[in-house]
């Protein structure tokens, strides 16, 4: 079985099958680049991911392992309206996988999935964050995501008034 060594930013190495690694667009490209540049076809590729720490990389690989037999989603599917396809692929396993995570971990997973080009994981993590916005008031959103208002004077009230005409009661 062909293997590839994936090394996180803090030096932890994960030995995974190339078939699994190629589910990630980034790893697939790196493996192919290694193959082209290496004289030894038996040599084991080693890929260093300098932006993802071990714990997050472990979660990404675990998700990939669970979904290794899923069809690969096209990278730009449904891009026209700016969202992905989370509804299409979220399973009970995904929900169990994401449920205990705090928001910070989810953010890191989003960054990792984006960097490694794992579209399915990116979709479900973005959808999870979206679900924490849906139905909330402005103040609740600020509190949930630790955001501060930079509106001055009556700007906030003006924004609210601008939108009032197209919001249902």
């Amino acid at each position: 079985m062909a293997l590839v060594r994936v090394i996180s930013s803090d030096g932890a190495a994960f030995l995974v099958s190339q078939r699994l690694a190629k589910r990630s667009g980034k790893l697939k490209t790196e493996i192919e680049t290694f193959r082209k540049s290496s004289d030894n076809s038996e040599a084991q590729p080693e890929i260093r991911i300098v932006t993802i720490r071990a714990e997050i990389l472990r979660l990404v690989l675990q998700w990939l392992q669970q979904h290794q037999n899923d069809p690969v989603l096209p990278a730009n599917q449904n891009e026209q309206d700016g969202r992905g396809d989370a509804e299409m692929g979220q399973s009970q396993w995904d929900r169990d996988f994401l449920a205990p995570m705090d928001l910070g971990i989810v953010m890191e997973l989003i960054l990792a999935a984006n960097h490694l080009e794992v579209k399915g994981l990116l979709d479900i993590t973005c959808k999870l964050v979206e679900s924490k916005i849906t139905g909330r008031t402005v103040d609740e959103i600020r509190t949930a995501f630790k955001l501060k208002s930079d509106f001055k004077g009556n700007e906030e009230e003006q924004t609210r008034l601008e939108n009032r005409w197209c919001v249902e009661n």
Binding site: I56, L59, V129, L147
Partner: peptide
């Protein structure tokens, strides 16, 4: 696993 990353970091 813990993280201090917030939405602003995306």
């Amino acid at each position: 696993v813990e993280s201090a990353l917030t939405l602003s970091g995306l």
